[in-house]
Simulated scan of single mutants.
Amino acid sequence: MKMLARFRPDKFLLLLLVTLAFASLVPARGSAAPLFDRLTDIGITLLFFMHGAKLSRSAIVAGLGAWRLHLMVLATTFILFPLLGLGMTTALSPWLDEAVVAGFLFLCIVPSTVQSSIAMTAMAHGNVPAAVCSASLSNVLGIVLTPMLAALLLHGQSAEGNFFLSALISVATTLLLPFILGHLARPLVGGFIDKHRSLVSRADRGVILLVVYTAFSAAVVEGLWKRFSGWDLISIAILSSILLGAVLLFTRFIARLTHQSHENEAVLVFCGSKKSLASGVPMAGALFAPAQVGVMVLPLMLFHQLQLLVCAALAQAYGRRAEANANVSGEKAHAV
């Protein structure tokens, strides 16, 4: 039963699938589409305001000492992932649909997760303060780095003459400004957010579901499911599995090569291998036209569930190894 529990999809993924199905059957169209677009813009602004307000300066200060570790995590998220994605899609481009390539490349350039990275690191008996700092730093820098990488890799997805400039302005006004205002407002609202984390988390997920519904509605109206075939979904699953496996092996190799402690190795493996659905979906909404967003986030949604399944099992293995090492050390100390 414990083995089966590892592979049970989380409730949020099920809600995403229900939302996707509802958008496919009852998409927002006609006069309802602009209303949902406006609600989505408001929701994304609220989402990043809460992200900024949740960011604790004390947690950042506690983890800042491991700056080399943070650089390795950031390099994995914003250099290794894009290079692997570009290499894989270039090599397999004759067999892949352009929409699959675009969505897969977008998956490779979004920031790391925050909640699940910290949770997996804690489960693995890793350096939790460093994980908080690395994951938070990834999301803050991603507000600028993701549009920059999108300009390099996905400029063909925009009709704008200067993709980076338009993307940066859109992200700065929709994501960065609310994030900064939220963090500055933490002395006023931080207590409420810390006290009602479950409520904030539900609002957080509710906004993502709204963005997904609006995005997939526009994409369905534009013929999303006529463009994506079953083979395309299988291709995304195979590419995601190869990508995640390669990153997990690389981060573990680099941790051993640089003689990282078990605690810091867990941070590099579990923060470096993650991609954030919570940040990626709103970023796609800010960067691309509504009809494109559904196409762009579909690979990210599949990768999100895959990383949870694989990393949960891996984190438990790390945790058991840490406990075994602690027991051995305790026995040696007792013998002495």
Results as ranks from 00 to 15, higher is better:
A53S: 03
A91E: 00
D37A: 12
M123E: 00
G63A: 11
P111W: 02
V100W: 14
A102P: 06
L13N: 01
R6G: 04
A124W: 06
A21M: 04
P27E: 09
L83F: 13
M3Y: 06
P94G: 11
L15H: 00
M50F: 07
V110P: 04
K11H: 08
F81L: 12
V101N: 08
I79M: 15
L55N: 03
F36W: 15
I42G: 05
I118G: 02
A33H: 07
F48A: 04
M123H: 01
L16S: 07
Q115Y: 03
P111Y: 05
V18F: 08
S56D: 11
A5Y: 01
L69C: 05
E98L: 12
A32H: 10
L74V: 09
A119V: 07
F81Y: 13
M72Y: 14
C108I: 15
L13M: 12
S24H: 11
G52H: 04
G126Y: 02
L17T: 02
P27I: 06
L74N: 00
I60L: 15
G87M: 12
L86F: 13
L74E: 10
I44K: 04
M50C: 12
P9D: 11
D97V: 12
P9C: 09
I109P: 01
C108D: 10
A91I: 12
F22E: 07
P94T: 11
F36N: 04
F48H: 02
M1C: 07
G126H: 04
L107G: 03
A32V: 15
H70F: 05
A23R: 05
A66Y: 01
F49S: 08
A5G: 01
S56K: 12
G85Q: 10
W95L: 10
A23K: 10
H125T: 08
D97H: 15
L74I: 11
A23Q: 09
M123F: 01
G126D: 06
L80P: 08
L105G: 05
A59S: 07
S31T: 14
V100P: 07
A102Y: 07
T19A: 12
P82D: 12
A59I: 08
F78I: 05
G43N: 00
F49L: 13
R68A: 10
Q115H: 04
G103K: 11
L107A: 07
L105K: 09
G126E: 04
T121Q: 03
S58F: 02
T45V: 15
T76Q: 01
S116P: 03
G52R: 10
L86G: 06
L4S: 07
L25Q: 02
C108S: 14
P111K: 03
L39F: 13
G65M: 06
F81R: 02
A66G: 02
L80G: 06
